[in-house]
């Protein structure tokens, strides 16, 4: 495998042939903010926080999905990019109902951290206050749509790491929402293996653990069988 060299924020960096700008930057210790990116699943370039500038290219490039090019000169922290990131974060806060002080994820939320790091101490836009529900039907986990940023990290781990295909995005535009099976209450979504990967993947407090639970130690043989068939035969219903 041959390597490529490029410049990121003035530093000479070398990267594997098929590396993305994000890979190259991470390896060189340069931090590019991300939200929809999750190590281990494929990237979709959706949150647009990782956009960077490259000299000579008029368009901004998503670092997570753009492959490095020999000799490319990347800037990850220009004033313009910082401004766009800040607006992006403000839009996310104004879109749904993010009230950090009462959130289960307070202090370990990626969205909150990014906001701090970008000096976003208030939102200039009007909050749109859409009405969203909280689903607490699952014995172990909860889903609070008010805090979902639709990054689909949960959907991607559910499909491509766990292989259960329980979660998906439904609807479109601002009315998109994460659903389980046929929009059942999560607790009734019987393809869910309760593996908890989605909860671990969620960058905000939208998916959360509901404290220690009774069901925790119950081994579910049927579930295991189901997940094996789902993964190996790509068959989700008998």
């Amino acid at each position: 495998m041959c390597a490529k060299t490029l410049t990121i924020d003035g530093n000479e960096v070398s990267a594997a042939d098929d590396a993305t700008i994000l890979d190259a930057a991470t390896e060189a210790g340069i931090k590019i903010p991300t939200l929809c990116h999750l190590e281990g699943v494929y990237d979709i370039g959706a949150c647009r926080l990782c956009l960077v500038e490259a000299v000579g290219i008029p368009k901004l490039l998503p670092a997570c999905t753009t492959k490095v090019v020999e000799g490319m000169n990347v800037r990850t922290d220009t004033e313009r990019i910082r401004k766009y990131r800040r607006i992006n974060l403000e839009l996310l806060f104004a879109e749904r109902n993010h009230v950090c002080s009462v959130c289960v994820s307070n202090n370990h939320c990626e969205l909150q951290t990014l906001a701090y790091n970008h000096g976003m101490d208030h939102v200039r836009y009007d909050y749109l206050f859409p009405k969203w529900a909280v689903d607490t039907t699952h014995p172990r986990y909860g889903m609070d749509h008010n805090r979902c940023i639709l990054c689909t990290r949960c959907v991607r781990v559910c499909w491509h790491v766990e292989g259960a295909g329980t979660l998906n995005t439904a609807g479109r535009g601002a009315r998109s929402q994460i659903i389980a099976d046929l929009i059942q209450p999560w607790g009734e979504a019987d393809s869910c293996t309760s593996c908890g990967k989605c909860v671990m993947a969620c960058p905000t407090g939208a998916l959360f653990q509901r404290g220690a639970t009774v069901g925790e130690m119950e081994h579910d043989r049927e579930k295991l069988e189901f997940i094996i068939t789902a993964r190996e035969k790509k068959q989700w219903i008998p």
């Binding site: 609807g171 479109r172 659903i179 046929l182 929009i183």
Partner: peptide
């Protein structure tokens, strides 16, 4: 032979 969530996701898009 599709996960129900996939069918629902498409139908509502």
């Amino acid at each position: 032979k599709l996960p129900p969530s996939r069918v629902y996701g498409v139908a509502t898009f």
